[in-house]
């Protein structure tokens, strides 16, 4: 059993409200019983809403690899089980057929997208980064100060990403010598 997931919380007994009471055989409310039934065959995982910065926690119920329900996590001291219309829509984000699921490229002056493999796209992008970086790299400035920077590539965005991703992205971007590093917080 993967103990870091929702199951881990159930196991924690008093660490969880209704779910724990159910497993301990206490008298529970109809609402809580309903909750338990609805998700009884599902794997539950906790998540945090990707929209605004309140940071509401939710339970994702998954059956056969598909998310089937999103509900507010009652134990969260931030949202105490509530979600707004956007938080509820996390389900549609994951199940939408409008999600991008192919890597694509649009060639210069072309009028359309073309599919491309990850391998090829990543190889090409890495080459482009290297080419642009090396052709525009400044080791020293006019005053002879070591500056080791590249003004020709910008790195934008990140406010919807995870902390772990962001620290790797800024590490990567600064190792390349980028200085145009900006994201949504500025605007």
């Amino acid at each position: 059993m993967e103990l870091t997931r929702r199951g881990f919380l159930k196991l924690s007994g008093a660490g969880i409200g209704t779910a724990a009471l159910v497993s301990m055989g206490f008298n529970i409310s109809a609402y809580a019983a309903g909750m338990e039934l609805r998700t009884s065959t599902a794997t539950e995982t906790t998540t945090v809403c990707p929209y605004c910065s309140v940071g509401c926690s939710a339970i994702v119920s998954v059956i056969d690899g598909k998310p089937v329900a999103i509900e507010g996590l009652p134990d969260s001291p931030v949202n105490r089980g509530s979600l707004c219309s956007k938080g509820q829509a996390i389900l549609q984000v994951s199940t939408s057929d409008r999600r991008l699921n192919k890597v694509r490229v649009r060639e210069p002056n072309s009028e359309e997208w073309k599919e491309i493999s990850w391998e090829k796209a990543l190889d090409e992008i890495a080459e482009l980064i290297k080419e642009t970086r090396d052709a525009n790299f400044k080791i020293k400035d006019d005053k002879g100060i070591t500056v080791n920077r590249c003004d020709a590539i910008a790195n934008l965005g990140g406010a919807a990403l995870d902390n772990e991703e962001l620290h790797m992205i800024t590490k990567f971007a600064r190792a390349l010598g980028l200085v145009y590093i900006e994201h949504q917080a500025r605007i």
Binding site: T45, T47, V48, C49, P50, S53, V54, G55, V60, P67, V78, I90, V93, S94, R99, L100, N101, K102, V103, R104, V105, R106, E107, P108, N109, W113, I116, A121, E124, I125, L128, A160, D162, N163, E164, E165
Partner: peptide
Amino acid sequence: KTKVYALPAASSIEKSGSITNS
């Protein structure tokens, strides 16, 4: 003239990690 790559990304429930609220 711009060459554009569109890379499809995973949503919040399709990966693991932490985020920091207000």
